[in-house]
């Protein structure tokens, strides 16, 4: 068995960092947590059987560590609608501003729902994979997704939602 740590790191660093960043909403904290997760992985690397196993292990670790970290910091989302940028005008860069606004809205979701949305739309996992990663019943995953989409759609102004 010879998984090369540097290769695993290169292949997975953006996934691990992005999950932590979107979840913690703190770049420095995300870097620190991502680093910790990679070091934890490094200690266990002899038990990892394949690159897919490594990705699965890292994804699960960063999700759970991010949730723990937020709970530890008691960083419940406190961003109100006032913090969300105003709807862009016709002549600004509508896509960029809309994305920023969506990101901010995602940050206001409760922890578990936010992680489910991240895994679905950032990591492109299907509900079964999300349920395995978060140890959550698949019905709960689906209900988080459904409710979150409804909330997010509702918070965006109607003219900004294309469909």
């Amino acid at each position: 068995m010879g998984l090369e740590f540097a290769k695993v790191l290169a292949d997975n660093q953006s996934m691990v960092f992005s999950v932590a960043l979107r979840f913690l909403r703190d770049r420095e904290g995300a870097e620190e947590l991502a680093q910790d997760v990679f070091l934890q992985f490094y200690r266990q690397i002899a038990r990892i059987e394949s690159p897919a196993h490594a990705t699965w292990w890292l994804r699960r670790a960063i999700c759970h560590r991010s949730i723990d970290e937020v709970r530890k910091r008691k960083l419940r989302p406190r961003i109100g609608l006032d913090d969300i940028p105003e709807s862009p005008g016709q002549d600004s860069q509508p896509d960029l501003l809309l994305r920023e606004r969506i990101r901010k809205l995602v940050e206001t979701l409760p922890e578990k729902a936010r992680m489910v949305v991240l895994l679905r739309y950032q990591e492109d996992l299907d509900p079964t994979e999300i349920s395995e990663t978060l140890h959550m019943p698949i019905s709960t995953v689906k209900s988080h997704l459904h409710r979150s989409l409804t909330v997010l759609r509702g918070k965006l102004r109607p003219q900004e939602v294309c469909s």
Binding site: D95, V106, Q122, D124, L149, C162
Partner: peptide, 20 residues
């Protein structure tokens, strides 16, 4: 559609260059 907007908004980000 909205789900595509979500995907685009939640695109992965690269960590700092010296992270690795």
């Amino acid at each position: 559609n909205f789900e595509d907007d979500l995907r685009a908004a939640l695109r992965r980000e690269q960590p700092p260059a010296d992270f690795a």
